[in-house]
Simulated scan of single mutants.
Amino acid sequence: MAAKFRMSRKGVGQLLRSPMVEAEMLRRADVIKDAAVAISPVGTAAWDPHPGLYKASWHSTSTRRGGRRKDRAVATVWNSAPYARWVEYGTERVHAHHVLLRAAQAGGR
């Protein structure tokens, strides 16, 4: 006799918001953050007024009420340096480093 499976939307929702799933999302975010710190560029004191600020500005957080509908656990990795956008995407004078992109591709497992 074949087994029958009946999905419970409420049960799936509880699973997606569970502390267990949130902890796993945060663990993966921390792996990505560590990879980003490892490959972050550091300027020299000769031309960078704050050498090491970008590398020291990585953060990760998690919440159980994330996603578009606020119905699942999510984790976020970001850099709080004021010039993080230009390091990631570059400018017309400086090439893009894509630190977060490369960290996400390498980590998160």
Rank of each mutant, 00 (worst) to 15 (best):
M1A: 13
A3V: 09
A3W: 06
A3Y: 08
K4F: 14
F5T: 10
S8I: 02
R9Q: 14
K10E: 14
K10Q: 14
V12M: 14
G13H: 12
G13R: 13
G13S: 14
Q14T: 14
L15C: 11
L16H: 05
R17S: 05
S18G: 12
S18V: 09
P19W: 07
P19L: 08
P19G: 11
M20Q: 15
M20P: 04
V21R: 05
E24R: 13
L26K: 11
L26F: 11
R27I: 06
R27N: 11
R28T: 05
R28I: 04
R28W: 03
A29Q: 00
V31F: 04
I32R: 05
I32F: 04
I32P: 03
K33M: 10
D34Q: 15
D34W: 01
D34S: 15
D34Y: 04
A35V: 04
A35P: 00
A36H: 03
A36V: 03
A38Y: 01
I39F: 02
I39N: 03
S40I: 01
S40N: 03
P41M: 07
V42N: 08
V42W: 06
G43Y: 00
T44F: 01
A45S: 14
A45E: 13
A45Q: 12
A45V: 13
A46F: 00
G52D: 10
Y54T: 02
Y54W: 06
Y54C: 04
K55P: 09
A56M: 13
A56F: 09
H59V: 02
S60T: 08
T63Q: 05
T63K: 06
R64T: 03
R64K: 14
R65P: 00
R65Y: 11
R65I: 05
G66A: 08
G66V: 09
G66I: 07
G67Q: 05
R69A: 07
R69C: 00
R72M: 13
R72Q: 13
A73L: 05
A73W: 02
A73S: 15
A73C: 11
A75S: 12
A75N: 07
T76W: 08
T76N: 08
V77F: 02
N79S: 07
A81N: 09
P82D: 09
Y83Q: 02
A84G: 06
A84D: 02
R85M: 12
W86F: 15
V87P: 01
V87E: 01
E88R: 07
Y89S: 13
G90D: 06
V94E: 13
A96C: 07
H97T: 04
H97Y: 10
H98Q: 12
H98S: 10
V99W: 03
L101N: 06
A104W: 07
A104M: 14
Q105G: 13
A106Q: 13
A106D: 08
G107P: 06
G107M: 13
G107H: 10
R109N: 12
R109E: 13
